[in-house]
Design a protein around this nucleic acid. Structure first.
Lengths: 157, 157
DNA sequence: ATGGGGGTTCCCATCATGGGAAGGTCAAGG
DNA sequence: CCTTGACCTTCCCATGATGGGAACCCCCAT
């Protein structure tokens, strides 16, 4: 057994987690410190690759790093009750549904406005009229809490 | 006319844009430098409030600050063709739809997994089994490009 | 032995937002 | 007049997950 230890770049290639992120996960405690060669290179074995793929998959399902830490702990505890895992998953689902609903609301509003705008050479524009409408209640901003949202924004719309 | 000039806090209260953000919008050029009193306090008039409400509304529709800058420019240009505005709105809609589809995919997958997990005292858990499945292709991460995603993440899942 | 590819650390940027410190200003009340 | 407290100013820092890049070290193959 004990396959040849892989360097971080190789581990990155095989798991789809970038070398940069592997280092970061280690620095922030999501991963235990990797074994080092004499010269300081990190080395990874099969078990590490497994963990990295787990992380990668969880990220793809939208879990935050904190959530993944919880999942990893449960994963390593072979006696865990599945109820705990299911609860985490359902919180995540609820979170996703909340975010979807928020975006859906925005999209629908914009679609209405866009449909009402003829989009030709003339300056009349219901979209701008809506944005500029002065009669909006200054609601206390529905608190953006709980919207991870991943990924840097596009450069410009 | 010329109503009494408002302080930044008052403007914030009336527009739903926090004082902090008003200063930041000014610092980054989204807003022109505000008029100052002798002692350095920023003062805002009706036109400024109007602009701030415009910004607030656009943020609520998910536009990035860059997008809002474009919209503001069009708004101020009374001769603009509405086509430009409509194009921006439709890009934004497409962006929202893309993000929704991504989240929807995650939610559906998780729902399948969650449904398959009995969530009791026993340790068997299809959710963890899926996350741990080793046979995943290390696809080059579907490039998170173009997903603004607003708002800081929740503290922990 | 030399070159190139890849490792290491450290710093910086993103995007929109809030928290907080240190210090100046203003209006109301004693 | 002076205090008090609310409000303003600027400046720095943190968030989350990610990438970019510099400066430097290491290892293997020609």
């Amino acid at each position: 057994m004990s396959a040849a230890p892989l360097t971080i770049g190789e581990a990155a290639r095989r798991t789809g987690v970038s070398a940069k992120m592997i280092r970061w996960y280690e620095a922030t405690g999501l991963l235990p410190p990797a074994v080092r060669s004499e010269s300081g290179y990190r080395h990874y074995g099969e078990a590490d690759l497994h963990t990295l793929r787990f992380i990668r998959r969880a990220r793809d399902l939208g879990f935050s790093v904190d959530g993944i830490a919880d999942l990893l702990a449960l994963w390593r505890d072979r006696a865990r009750p599945s109820a705990g895992v299911k609860a985490i998953a359902q919180e995540q689902i609820a979170d996703l549904r909340r975010r979807i609903a928020e975006l859906e609301g925005m999209a629908r509003t914009l679609e209405h406005l866009s449909d009402a705008c003829c989009g030709d050479d003339r300056p009349e524009c219901p979209i701008l009229d809506d944005l500029a409408a002065a009669d909006r209640a200054p609601m206390p901003r529905p608190s953006r809490r709980g919207l991870p949202g991943r990924g840097p924004a596009r450069k410009s719309v």
